[in-house]
């Protein structure tokens, strides 16, 4: 067996080379001290139990961009306690949740999600057999997300005129919009709360069920997912924000974004003033 020994000079050169390489890797990939390193995610508009997959897919992507990690939450309280503790991170949250949280912990929206060129979506209430909102008393309404979120959407859509009906409605929380819409088709629910986009998707998935559903009410347009930071945090969010923003335009990143129902991001400072002021 041949044993090769490096001369001192060769040894020194390799060590020096490795040292430079290591420094370069750290400089290009590691988040510098004082920068944000974690993306925290919670979405009350979906109950899809995909947290393990989200964690694994986003961690894989972010690890290539620096010492960044992704932390999804299934519980609203836990997520909010992280925000309230002024943890250093970027928070991905629904615009409905953003508006609520912003009043308690001042947030600054940095990016807004984009899907098929749209920044906003509208929730609608559809039914097969109920023909007017007055017929909703005692009905079972299916929707994706937490009960609190579905109830909030119903209140917004029905308005104060029908406030007395809300306590008489039974909610059925399902994992996703498509489940809610199909639950009406199968007679499991009397009506469904879903996004208008999901309702349109049903036309492709099950045209017969789509044709049977009629719109009873609709809500205001709301932004898709928001990426925000707390106003009190002092660290530099730029590297992590760049990593998130950079997901669009590359196959691997875009596929991860699709798991959040997005195609890309738009910077808040690039929005029309009429839109950006809604997030202040």
């Amino acid at each position: 067996m041949n044993i090769y020994k490096l001369s001192n000079l060769e040894n020194y050169s390799i060590k020096k080379y490795l040292s430079i390489l290591f420094t370069l890797v750290i400089l290009t990939q590691t988040a510098p001290a004082g920068t944000l390193s974690t993306v925290f995610f919670y979405n009350p508009e979906s109950s899809v139990d995909n947290f393990a997959t989200l964690k694994s897919e986003f961690d894989d992507y972010l690890a290539n961009k620096g010492e960044f990690t992704f932390q999804p939450f299934s519980e609203r309280n836990t997520f909010e306690s992280v925000v309230n503790d002024k943890s250093q991170g970027i928070y991905l949250l629904s615009s409905w949740h953003y508006a609520q949280l912003n009043s308690k912990t001042p947030l600054e929206a940095k990016l807004v999600g984009v899907s098929k060129g749209e920044l906003q979506q509208r929730k609608i209430l559809t039914s097969k057999d109920i023909t007017s909102t007055s017929g909703l008393s005692g009905a079972t309404i299916a929707g994706a997300g937490s009960d609190e979120y579905i109830k909030g959407q119903l209140q917004q859509m029905l308005g104060s005129e029908y406030a007395a009906i809300i306590p008489k409605i039974k909610l059925l929380s399902v994992p996703k919009d498509i489940d809610a819409l199909m639950a009406v088709g199968y007679g499991v629910a009397n009506a469904a709360v879903s996004s208008e986009t999901s309702f349109n998707k049903l036309a492709m998935i099950n045209p017969k069920q789509h044709a049977q559903l009629k719109k009873l009410a609709d809500g205001e347009k709301n932004f898709l997912l928001i990426a925000a930071v707390t106003k009190v945090q002092k660290s530099d969010e730029t590297p992590l924000l760049k990593a998130i923003e950079g997901m669009q335009g590359q196959d691997i990143g875009e596929r991860k974004l699709k798991m959040l129902g997005l195609d890309g991001w738009k910077r808040i400072d690039a929005l029309d003033a009429s839109l950006s002021k809604q997030l202040r």
Partner: peptide
Amino acid sequence: NADALDAVNQI
């Protein structure tokens, strides 16, 4: 269909 990925629990 990549647009269906937000409905997928496990990849």
